[in-house]
Nucleic acid binder design. Structure first.
Lengths: 261, 261
DNA sequence: GCAATCAACTGGTCTGACCAGTCGCCTGGC
DNA sequence: GCCAGGCGACTGGTCAGACCAGTTGATTGC
């Protein structure tokens, strides 16, 4: 890029930058730089009006943008001002959820994507886990077992422990980005497929798949303990496939099978 | 969930929903449902004021939210009103870029994540590619070869063809979601590491890594043609590792190596 | 000591205004 | 007849000021 003609050097097309954008950028930069840590408060809107020397609507539009990005949260009547939330995976979840709802991708793709992310979490976690991770995972698997042996079953607590299990594995992978994405996809899947799950529970075979799921999780845990990443990854993929495939039409199922490896 | 005490059934905490949220939701739903396809136009703000029967600031805050989500784009003076862009991966890119810039994740994690996504793209693409995909990939590999054999090198066109290559592979994987995420991560990596790359180019070994990269891409292409997903995935991981590892400190490099498999 | 009240905030919304930019029409000169 | 220029009639961006409902904390009354 060092060989451009002199006439083209130094000048770039200038696009108008809106006032609310500059306000939002300044605040976002402070948040990302850590100067406004999560939990801290922004000044009140009318105070920001004075500091930035713009109208209140400009301030409000900037705050709306930040809020829709999940960086801040505001509450009417709060004398402390808007609360800084910091970077969170919620934006990712939202964006993924939107993609999942749009014609751009199908539920099957969402599930396949989750198979990929989960499997890679397992693979990495098998190498990098700590004893503490294993302890927590064992505990969660036990919790899941209790939920299924209890009468009546407690599918809510079960799902909670299940989600927690995946979250711990993702964190054990040592890659926060992977963990955040895996969580976002997990949330999106749950949000998109929830209706199916409820129906399946009502069909009465809830105990059956919960039991199978517990077995799966224990096998995965054993593979993690043995540092067998490939096996853990394969087991994770199979578990997801078995769980979701029955609810999908054949073409989708075939595509999902391609991700089984 | 069917066994709750009667007193807890039927009532859920009602949280106030802001007017701008309802406006934004209505418009977003129409866009996601395809009733407002990309390229179509929203009514003018003052017309929306009439239709939704709210103040203009409410309309504007709703439009700001949609705009920051990348769903619409507005331009001053446009008599046609805001343009509908539809769901795009830009939001994902933004969110990932923010995560990459925040203290929550490091460049190494970003690269590792890209290794994961690319490798899985290869694995799936090896199974599901079409002849047309192979033709385009061959063409792009040739283009990359030309860029490197040209004198002087054309690193810009090279990077462009490289990005295109990855994009075609991701699309050949048959999973649009995976493709979008891979592209978003690619963009985030490029955005985050660009400074490093420029430095490397200036160091004069540009020709060398470009040549190696071409070889890598041809090997991957051969693996894809042979439907050898595992091999393609491994090659893809190695290519990224070789490219980025030299620019990282040792601890990060070690962690990246864990993703090599 | 405690509960009800009140005043001073907050964010959410509306109104009305002005500006600069953009477009389409319309008119004037060629 | 054609085209350039200008003139509205729009657009979105911004500002100012107002009101409302909700929150909070001090004050008041018991």
């Amino acid at each position: 890029m060092s060989a451009e003609s002199p006439a083209q050097i130094g000048f770039q097309p200038v696009r108008p930058v809106r006032a609310y954008q500059r306000v939002a950028e300044q605040i976002e930069d402070r948040i990302l730089a850590g100067e406004l840590p999560p939990g801290s408060r922004l000044p009140a809107e009318r105070e920001l009006v004075r500091q930035f020397d713009v109208g209140r609507s400009t301030i409000r539009e900037a705050l709306r943008v930040l809020q829709s990005s999940g960086l801040i949260r505001s509450r009417p009547g709060d004398p402390l001002g808007a609360e800084v939330l910091g970077v969170s995976p919620d934006t990712l979840s939202h964006a993924l959820g939107r993609l999942a709802r749009s014609h751009l991708s199908s539920p099957a793709e969402l599930i396949q994507f989750r198979m990929v992310l989960d499997a890679e979490s397992y693979r990495l976690a098998a190498r990098l886990h700590t004893e503490e991770d294993l302890r927590r995972l064992t505990e969660l698997a036990d919790t899941m077992g209790e939920c299924v042996s209890r009468d009546p079953h407690d599918p809510h607590a079960f799902s909670e422990a299940d989600a927690q299990f995946h979250r711990v594995v993702a964190e054990a992978s040592g890659n926060a980005l992977l963990a955040l994405c895996a969580r976002a996809v997990h949330d999106a899947v749950v949000g998109a497929i929830e209706g199916e799950l409820v129906r399946a529970e009502r069909d009465g075979d809830a105990g059956e798949w919960m039991r199978r799921s517990v077995v799966h999780h224990r096998e995965i845990l054993a593979a993690l303990r043995g540092a067998d990443g490939a096996r853990a990854a394969r087991l994770g993929r199979e578990a997801l496939f078995e769980h979701y495939a029955p609810h999908l039409p054949e073409p989708d199922r075939k595509r999902l099978r391609a991700a089984l490896d």
